[in-house]
């Protein structure tokens, strides 16, 4: 009875909202780009932390700025989705440590300066000269550069932490809506983090990296995909072992309406095929075609889209 009460008060009643489609394309785009940026930050900063003495390619140096641009695009999508756009500032008037949304909005606020400092510190000497030559910029830039260089390792470490937080949060955000059985799993956070790592790596692979960077990124990509597959398996096992609402969530992906999208688009086309290509390419020393990263990116988006749409169609009302 209490279940019914909860269901009525939160409108999670199949008869009231047969499919809760409050979220359209904006949220999957935001979650996808957020994860991608998280992956970019972790890999970019991680490479420099692990191999501080290696030269870095142009693409890797420019990466933090690309991350900023992509994150802004994602934030724009999120902003478009908000019903009360003028109330955005309210997120920043409070911090509730129990709420992932609150965490998320503060993490986003942290990502911007960290990525910016990360990017500024990555500028080459030549680029710095060009920028400092501009009279208007110089007084602002000079201390910034000095500080970014001095605190370089701290910036990089914060970058990794911010990336980890961002990646986890994109999954945990859905997990807070426990009323949706599809999202009522703790796996979503690590799953989206792993997926973000692999999409971030795939995005980097679209650009020209030097050989050692390429190796590093592919190795991490392979690892991230393997972890992602394990986590997807864990998610399904968790659903299978759960109560009837979880069975319903499992049914969505195993025989139900999102089965083909999940297995064909996400698992097969988005994970297994590019994984096979990366493994084959590593063994045979083949240059990696742009198709593999493109498939990973498409698969990463499809993962979020499928889980989001399926989640909005799953409810407790149907299966008490």
């Amino acid at each position: 009875m209490t279940g019914n009460l909860e269901v009525v008060t939160t409108r999670h009643n199949a008869a009231i909202d047969p499919v809760l489609s409050a979220w359209g394309w904006e949220i999957p785009v935001y979650l996808f780009l957020g994860g991608l940026v998280a992956g970019l930050l972790i890999l970019g900063a991680g490479y420099e932390l692990l191999h501080p003495d290696r030269p870095r390619s142009r693409a890797l140096r420019a990466m933090p700025f690309a991350a900023l641009g992509l994150l802004s695009l994602g934030m724009l999508a999120l902003f478009l989705d908000l019903a009360h756009k003028l109330h955005v500032y309210r997120f920043y008037l409070a911090f509730r440590w129990t709420s992932p949304m609150s965490w998320g909005s503060w993490i986003l606020l942290l990502v911007y300066p960290v990525a910016f400092l990360h990017g500024v510190g990555s500028l080459t000497a030549g680029q710095r000269e060009t920028l400092l030559a501009r009279r208007a910029l110089a007084p602002l830039l000079r201390p910034l550069l000095r500080w970014a260089d001095r605190a370089r390792r701290a910036v990089l470490k914060t970058s990794v932490v911010a990336g980890l937080g961002l990646g986890l949060y994109t999954g945990l955000l859905l997990g807070t809506l426990a009323a949706r059985p599809q999202w009522n799993t703790a796996v979503l956070g690590p799953l989206f983090l792993a997926s973000g790592l692999s999409t971030g790596a795939a995005f980097l692979l679209l650009f020209r990296l030097d050989e050692r960077e390429h190796d590093f990124v592919v190795r991490w990509d392979v690892g991230a995909i393997l972890v992602e597959l394990l986590l997807l398996g864990a998610m399904l096992l968790g659903f299978a072992a759960g109560d009837r609402s979880a069975q319903h969530a499992l049914y969505h992906l195993m025989g139900g309406p999102w089965t083909s999208a999940f297995w064909s688009l996400v698992v097969f086309a988005g994970l297994l095929v590019p994984l096979a290509m990366e493994l084959i390419g590593r063994r045979r020393r083949l240059p990696l075609a742009a198709l593999a990263p493109a498939l990973i990116l498409a698969g990463g988006f499809a993962l979020r889209w499928v889980l989001l749409v399926a989640g909005q169609a799953s409810s407790f009302r149907e299966f008490p």
């Binding site: 083909s260 064909s264 095929v273 096979a276 290509m277 045979r284 075609a289 198709l291 593999a292």
Partner: peptide, 22 residues
């Protein structure tokens, strides 16, 4: 539609593993 998606992917992997995805 799903079958032809598979055909496309099979072509990709076949060509790539033979070193002629170009």
């Amino acid at each position: 539609v799903f079958e032809v998606l598979g055909v496309f992917l099979g072509g990709v992997v076949g060509a790539y593993s033979a070193g002629r995805l170009r």
